[in-house]
Write a protein that binds this DNA or RNA. Structure first.
Lengths: 193, 193
DNA sequence: GTCTATACAATGATAGAC
DNA sequence: GTCTATCATTGTATAGAC
């Protein structure tokens, strides 16, 4: 099952996913995870600031991806096009293996408040990064925030749906379609009477 | 400075706000907070599940408020009107004292990752509650989510702005005005070419 | 029913050796 | 990079005092 890279971080992720699924997050100690990965507790904490972070590694690359995606859009792009450029870059930062890993993480998060908290924080960091990137391209800070919420919602809802797919569909297809649907629903609801 | 109720929870909040401001969140132990409030560490943890929760007490009432607000709107209310009913109820759940307390909490959150995490979690819980309440009143789950994001953004941005005001303005005035502005910006950006 | 005393497991930090 | 060892603190559990 070691389909992740053989580095320490990858082995720790594999070990954590297995032990959390068997015993639950709280009942699994950092020492157990380290032992299962052939390391010691101290080494685990050299790689990850805390136990939760084992499951959320690679999230900082997503911030870079979304920022770069917005930044590389054409100069005359509209606000909506800038948003789509950022979200598409976010999706491109994922590899197909995340489909199964994401599915397993989703099950754990659903039953673990500590992981829900970290999930919410990561989402807020990503939203803030997208908002900041958009705000460098057009003046309206309020619009940047509202569009960031919309895009990140499409990304998360699309991502979780993607992890449930059995075939290998590009993540961007699922997410951008979700974004279309969200935009349509909002446009309709905000219409002036 | 004990302008909060004389109960244990209020005294602990006062003590925590003071000590966190002086020493920082991490450098302040639970025992210090308890001692400052004339209690012991054990009693602190009887009142609050963890150290962060001292600052976020009363948040569960906000969930009740937003749910009740949406639920009590007129039967023929539009989606936008339902949203405004929920947000208005949220604002009504605050007392003027929160203006100063919120200002002090904002400063602490800005420099403390642990508190940022809890803030993000509370926001996500509130968003989910609003989304669920809206979804009971109209069928479109996507619209419920997108409108919840919009309303909660107006609430938070408005709330932080409100804490900086020196006069005693109703919170709802600030927040609903923010919501108007957000709706206008989005409506314009989502317009079909 | 609110408060306290005490013991306990686990996290996360730290300093130093291989 | 990895390890051993030690440490303060959080948060839990359980007992009992006022």
């Amino acid at each position: 099952m070691g389909r992740w890279e053989p580095g320490a971080r990858g082995r720790l992720l594999d070990a954590a996913l297995q032990l959390f699924a068997e015993q639950g997050y709280d009942a699994t100690t950092a020492a157990q995870i380290a032992a299962q990965a052939g390391l010691t507790r101290t080494t685990l904490f050299r790689h990850f600031a805390d136990k939760r972070e084992i499951l959320f590694q690679g999230q900082s690359e997503l911030v870079s991806a979304v920022t770069a995606g917005v930044g590389s859009a054409a100069g005359e792009a509209t606000a909506r096009e800038l948003l789509r450029a950022g979200i598409a870059a976010l999706c491109a930062a994922h590899v197909p293996e995340q489909q199964e890993i994401g599915r397993r993480i989703k099950r754990l998060v659903a039953v673990t408040p500590e992981l829900q908290e970290r999930t919410a924080f990561k989402r807020s960091v990503l939203t803030a990064a997208l908002e900041a990137a958009l705000a460098t391209r057009f003046a309206d800070r309020r619009l940047a925030g509202a569009l960031a919420d919309l895009g990140i919602r499409a990304y998360y809802d699309g991502f979780w749906a993607w992890t449930d797919l059995r075939r290998a569909e590009p993540l961007a297809d699922v997410v951008l379609q979700e974004l279309d649907a969200l935009e349509g629903a909002l446009r309709n609801a905000l219409k002036r009477t």
